[in-house]
């Protein structure tokens, strides 16, 4: 028996499809059963292909390449490759991301979310710097360069001393201060049971006052000003 459906069966189901179409506003049929033994499409990836593309790093160190880099070496690379956007001390220039400082500000009116104050895992720094930085020349830095930049960012955040050397071997020993500052989405317990039920429809309040107006801020693009907040 063929692993694909019998064409006569397809004709049969099309007949039912036409009848059903008269009664239903929209029709959706699944793309069908997965055939026994698979479709046989695509080809095996080679080890070299996987090595070239599989660049991701995890908090447990999975994916880290061999190599090492010092704070001192990192400062030199940083000055040349990174400082024109992120500042000499990772303090951020213009609206480019601030990467150092901000300790103890997360509950403030204006929190400063940096590697030291907010990011939970160091592996994210290594992974992101290699895959996406320098901006406009991704995946161009060596493993030693990335270890060195990562070490310099730790130093900028007062997490290591200036003689520190980061390597694959000691990578997972370094923990970021805010690792425990995150928890799994709990909206199903904290919000969904609250935001439910038949709401008031008639005579719901006695008076209504305007409490805030966008024109006072005047930051809509055609109006020229600059507003608060960032999405990046």
């Amino acid at each position: 028996m063929s692993r694909f459906p019998d064409p006569r069966m397809i004709r049969g189901s099309l007949g039912a499809f036409v009848v059903a179409a008269l009664a239903l506003p929209a029709l959706a049929e699944d793309a069908g059963q997965f055939p026994e033994g698979g479709f046989g499409l695509g080809r095996e990836a080679t080890p070299d292909e996987i090595a070239l593309w599989d660049i991701d790093i995890r908090p447990d160190g999975k994916g880290l390449p061999a190599g090492s880099g010092s704070v001192e070496a990192g400062e030199e690379i940083w000055t040349y490759e990174c400082a024109h956007c992120h500042g000499d001390f990772a303090e951020g220039i213009d609206r480019w991301p601030v990467l150092a400082g901000g300790e103890g500000t997360l509950a403030n009116d204006r929190p400063v979310k940096t590697i030291g104050s907010y990011w939970p895992y160091l592996s994210t720094v290594y992974d992101y710097v290699y895959r996406a930085m320098p901006f406009g020349y991704s995946q161009s830095l060596s493993a030693d360069d990335i270890y060195a930049i990562t070490a310099y960012l730790l130093y900028s955040n007062y997490i290591v001393e200036d003689d520190f050397v980061l390597s694959r071997e000691n990578f997972t020993e370094v923990r970021l201060p805010n690792e425990d500052g995150f928890f799994m989405d709990d909206r199903a317990e904290t919000e969904l049971p609250v935001f439910i039920g038949e709401p008031c429809m008639t005579d719901c309040k006695d008076s209504v006052e305007i409490t805030a107006r966008a024109v006072i801020l005047d930051v809509t693009p055609e109006d020229g000003g600059e507003g608060g907040g960032s999405i990046d």
Binding site: D56, A107, K113, Y118, W119, M184, D232
Partner: peptide, 25 residues
């Protein structure tokens, strides 16, 4: 993997300084 877009970004910082992660829906 806890990559940049699910740690530094796209996590929801609450008033007490803790943040929700994996707020997908």
């Amino acid at each position: 993997w806890h990559h940049r877009e699910e740690t530094s970004k796209y996590t929801d910082l609450l008033a007490d300084g803790n943040a929700r992660r994996f707020t997908w829906e």
